[in-house]
Design a protein around this nucleic acid. Structure first.
Length: 932
RNA sequence: GGACGCAUAGCUCAGUUGGGAGAGCACCGCCCUUACAAGGCGGGGGUCGCAAGUUCAAGCCUUGCUGCGUCCACCA
């Protein structure tokens, strides 16, 4: 084995092996365990958020697969209607073309080409991450069988009256020329103005002053509203104003929606271009005058001079006209929420169009119930509040999009605009008994991408056909996703799956945090702080990183800053850390926190962890290869004690006990989705117990002439088999290194017949017989002994190579028993040349450490500086004095002694006694040293 | 306006039912000891945002405040 772990040398071949051997398939045996991959955009590429979530999912999948569950990771990609169509349209634009130049059919061909060309990117990147979904079951949301499901759902909902078509005010994106749902509109506060406009009152010299942030909409005003109780305007209710410019006579109406305290207390009402006004328009039977074209220019309902102007140009013109009519009262700076399309970024216009909607309320109810009654569980639980809040105020879902890329709506119209819904024209004619002479045309629109995503849990399992997968894997076990798509996707899956299968789609919803940069900023191209997971795996040199970060920016003027920051943060580019280090980092960062700040130094730390594992393997191999590891002896499988020729020492038994304990904790943490704690316990065991202590403790046995063959066999046996189990424990989190190392070590272990991949072995289980509190107690004593000596050595600046004599004073019988069992280890690990037990209190001048009542003494004899030892003792003394003061204060408090539980009081008393004894010894030492 | 989250060591974060403040990284000192210098050993470092309350006991529970953040709704 190489001296240093080199991930790039093993990962790809390792993955190919797994995939070619079909190891990712559900076994068909055991309890079903299923995860649905949130389908990424087919033409997208893997970002840090994906990598994070995929790591978590893969860890769960591998864990359950090794546990023997019938484990399916259902994967696939999404057609991502708007996003994908935009990409291809942009490509066309670069050639000076629009999609209309190509026509619908040609344009769709072009998108399919693009999908074929770039559709494999993300799935290839997932392979680099080591993910193990069943690729043979990969689904694309526009595959034939998915389209069948989409149609079926649409038709069934329509026939039940739960999908309807109607003219309403929708969020209209004037650049994409499509309706979008409420969720696709981002409202952000921006600086704007409030214009105060005067409307002359009919047959009067009076005016009403209305305030507006969108003056151009006055062209569509059909009323002015005041509060019914507003005394200022009582006399005007029922009268009319003459709308300037448009010269329209519109009524002054009363409605308690108006807040008399805001602005002037008069509101202009534009039912065709504002959601509140629309509602009021319906209440008061007001006409709805649409003044905009689809691309947000002023239409023929406005005065001729304004027609054809862009909405923002028209705004200026309208203001100018009011000014010249002396009807502009004032212009105030004003902060307002501006609705923008989440894809296009342009200002959304409320716009009257015909669209398709899902009547959502009856679907929402069972979906709310499922979470309320605990059938579906959010983790962390708190997210159910977010869910409830949205679900209980849910609005009908606008599902039609004026796009070409997507599932075309299965509806046909005759010349009289009658609607017929069915699978295809032929079916429709039969279903509605329409004569062939009647011309039918299909709806031009497609469905919202999320409509097909909502069917993911059952459509991927073969619905509407009855399949075994539907029975077995609905509901799936857990959905791993971000909170940003709870409404878009999670809620809608629950509604649709309940509706069409009667089952819940998943039992748990594990909501992960959002990956941010190390300072908590969102990763974005414009900030130039985006990390590509593949770059962390393979490494990237500085120049490539800089050009990657600065190319194709929406705001090229930021490039210089991005370049500067990048050069500063990564003067040497990014090193190659390998997949396992990256995955372990994600695992360790997966706490309950909402925001996860991705820290490069963590990756480096876990790269080192990989190297640690690698080198531990080298040590194990070096000591076990070609040696008798006792694996063929009876009883070796579940070894926890001595079996004749296999003699386990106290520290062999100790490490088995620790391993068992670690596994127990790990199982609990996985149950709780606390992957950060999972990472912590396995890291701690591997590095701080197995490597730091166990490997060191094994050396004296393996290298000594004194230890017996049976003892050596016992230690080798433990060395190899604990490690082999540890590799299996680690595998779900670090699949590559564990596979590579396991293949080298497995032949030496009791698990030698387990097959040709660690991913198909059994996950280790906890065994009560491995628990060994006595061994744990003894090794604790050994550790304290050694640390005590090291402490003196470290603080007294004694050369590590200098072997020291140790005297023990005030040793109990139990100390002496432990000493006898472990003396060889103490001598080696603490670098001692002798250990003597003193019969009485007499001792030369010594530096000292305490282990319980026993004093570990190192004669100063020219080695140790008096002042330095004095300072060390004083430090310990004052620490003990503080402890004693605090504890005795507590114990002398009558309230405490009368009210606290007995075991707490006893514990405090014990602590006090112990501290006093320690203090006494320290002070005695101080006197002794002081006399020198 | 409504809901939610966060504030603990220089940085990034753990701290489970209230009972002696932890990790990684960074920092300081010593060491190239035959698994590993991507390492070993030792060490320093925190008024747990502020205030009040409950309690024998509060990083943890309650209330208020401050600061930061997210989501939903929205006053033209």
């Amino acid at each position: 084995m190489e001296k240093t772990f080199n991930p790039s040398a093993i990962e790809k071949a390792c993955y190919r092996h797994w995939e070619e051997e079909g190891m990712f398939k559900a076994s068909g045996q055991g309890e079903p365990y299923c995860i649905l991959l949130p389908p990424p955009n087919v033409t997208g590429s893997l970002h840090m958020g994906h990598a994070f979530q995929h790591t978590i999912m893969d860890a769960l999948i591998r864990y359950h697969r090794m546990k023997g569950d019938n484990t399916l990771w259902q994967c696939g990609t999404d057609h991502a209607g708007i996003a994908t169509q935009m990409v291809v349209e942009r490509q066309l634009n670069a050639d000076g073309l629009t999609r209309h130049d190509l026509g619908r059919e040609k344009f769709l061909e072009r998108i399919w080409q693009w999908k074929e060309q770039s559709g494999g990117t993300i799935t290839q990147q997932m392979r680099r991450l080591g993910t193990s979904p069943d690729w043979d079951r990969e689904v694309f949301t526009m595959d034939e069988n998915l389209s069948v499901a989409v149609q079926e759902v649409f038709i069934q909902l329509y026939d039940e009256g739960l999908i309807y078509r109607g003219q309403r005010l929708v969020n209209w994106d004037p650049s994409l020329l499509t309706a979008v749902s409420d969720l696709e509109v981002i409202n952000e506060e921006e600086d704007g103005y409030m214009w105060h406009l005067r409307y002359p009152i009919e047959n009067s010299d009076e005016h009403l002053v209305v305030a507006t942030t969108r003056p151009e909409t006055m062209l569509g005003d059909t009323a002015v509203a005041v509060h019914p109780d507003d005394e200022r305007y009582q006399h005007l209710i029922g009268k009319h104003v003459i709308l300037p410019i448009a010269d329209r006579r519109i009524p002054i109406i009363a409605d308690d929606y108006v807040d008399p305290a805001f602005g002037t207390g008069c509101v202009k009402i534009t039912p065709a271009h504002d959601f509140n006004d629309y509602e009021m328009g319906k209440r008061h039977n007001l006409p709805m005058i649409n003044i905009l074209t689809k691309d947000a220019k002023i239409n023929g309902n406005a005065p001729a001079q304004l027609q054809g102007l862009d909405r923002f140009e028209a705004r200026k013109q309208v203001v100018d006209m009011f000014q010249s009519l002396e009807l502009l009262n004032e212009i105030k700076p004003h902060k307002l929420k501006v609705p923008r399309g989440d894809r296009s970024g342009v200002v959304i216009e409320p716009f009257l169009t015909d669209q398709w909607y899902v009547a959502i309320e009856s679907l929402a109810k069972p979906a709310i119930d499922a979470v309320e009654n605990g059938e579906i569980r959010f983790v962390p639980e708190n997210w159910n509040k977010t869910y409830f809040q949205w679900m209980r105020n849910i609005q009908d879902w606008c599902i039609s999009r004026q796009l070409w890329w997507g599932h075309r709506i299965p509806a046909w119209y005759d010349e009289n605009e009658n609607v017929y819904v069915g699978n295809d024209e032929k079916t429709v004619r039969q279903k509605y008994q329409i004569d062939d002479a009647v011309v039918l045309t299909q709806d031009e629109d497609v469905l919202d991408t999320w409509f097909s995503s909502a069917l993911w849990p059952f459509a991927t399992m073969g619905w509407p056909q009855k399949t075994d997968e539907l029975d077995t894997f609905v509901p799936s076990s857990v959905l791993v996703t971000g909170f940003d798509i709870i409404f878009f996707w999670v809620a809608r899956m629950i509604m649709m799956t309940k509706k069409f299968t009667g089952r819940i789609p998943f039992k748990d919803i594990y909501i992960t945090g959002l990956i941010r940069d190390e300072h908590g900023d969102k990763m974005s191209k414009s900030k130039g702080n985006v990390l590509d997971p593949i770059d962390l795996i393979d490494g990237i040199e500085l120049e490539s990183l800089v050009s990657k970060r600065t190319s194709g920016m929406m705001q090229p003027q930021l490039a210089a800053k991005v370049e500067k920051n990048t050069r500063k943060q990564f003067p040497n580019g990014i090193a190659s850390y390998g997949t396992d280090a990256l995955r372990f980092t994600f695992t360790a960062l997966a706490s309950t926190s909402r925001d996860i700040n991705f820290d490069m130094s963590r990756v480096e730390g876990y790269r080192n962890f990989c190297n640690k594992i690698w080198n531990a393997a080298r040590f194990v191999l070096m000591n076990c290869e070609g040696q008798d590891t006792g694996n063929n002896l009876t009883g070796a499988q579940n070894v926890s004690d001595q079996y004749g020729e296999l003699e386990l020492s106290v520290f062999d038994r100790w490490i088995w006990s620790r391993l068992n304990n670690t596994l127990k904790q790990l199982n609990e943490h996985i149950e709780d989705y606390r992957f950060d704690l999972v990472a912590q316990v396995v890291y701690e065991f591997t590095w701080n117990q197995y490597c730091d202590w166990y490997l060191e403790l094994s050396k004296p046995v393996l290298n000594s002439d004194v230890s017996s063959d049976n003892q050596k066999r016992g230690t080798r046996h433990t060395l190899i088999n604990v490690f082999e189990e540890l590799l299996r424990i680690l595998h779900p989190f670090m699949p590559f290194i564990t596979e590579e190392v396991w293949k080298k070590l497995q032949p030496l272990s009791v698990n030698q017949g387990a097959g040709n991949s660690i991913m198909l072995t059994q996950y280790p289980v906890t065994l009560a017989e491995r628990e060994d509190p006595i061994a744990e107690d003894q090794i604790e004593w050994v550790k304290k002994f050694i640390v005590g000596v090291r402490n003196i050595r470290g603080e007294m600046d004694l050369a590590p190579s200098k072997r020291l004599p140790v005297l023990l004073r005030n040793a109990h019988a139990s100390d002496i028993a432990k000493l006898e069992e472990t003396k060889a280890f103490l001598l080696t690990l603490a670098k001692l040349d002798s250990i003597k037990v003193l019969e009485d209190a007499q001792a030369p001048a010594c530096a000292s450490a305490l282990l319980g009542d026993m004093e570990i003494l190192i004669p100063m004899a020219g080695l140790i500086d008096k002042e330095a030892e004095m300072a060390r003792l004083r430090k310990n003394e004052s620490k003990l004095e503080k402890d004693i003061q605090r504890i005795s204060g507590k114990l002398s408090n009558q309230n405490f002694t009368s009210k606290a539980p007995v075991h707490v009081i006893d514990k405090e008393r014990e602590k006090l006694t112990h501290a006093r004894q320690q203090l006494e010894k320290i002070q005695q030492q101080i006197i002794e040293i002081g006399q020198l």
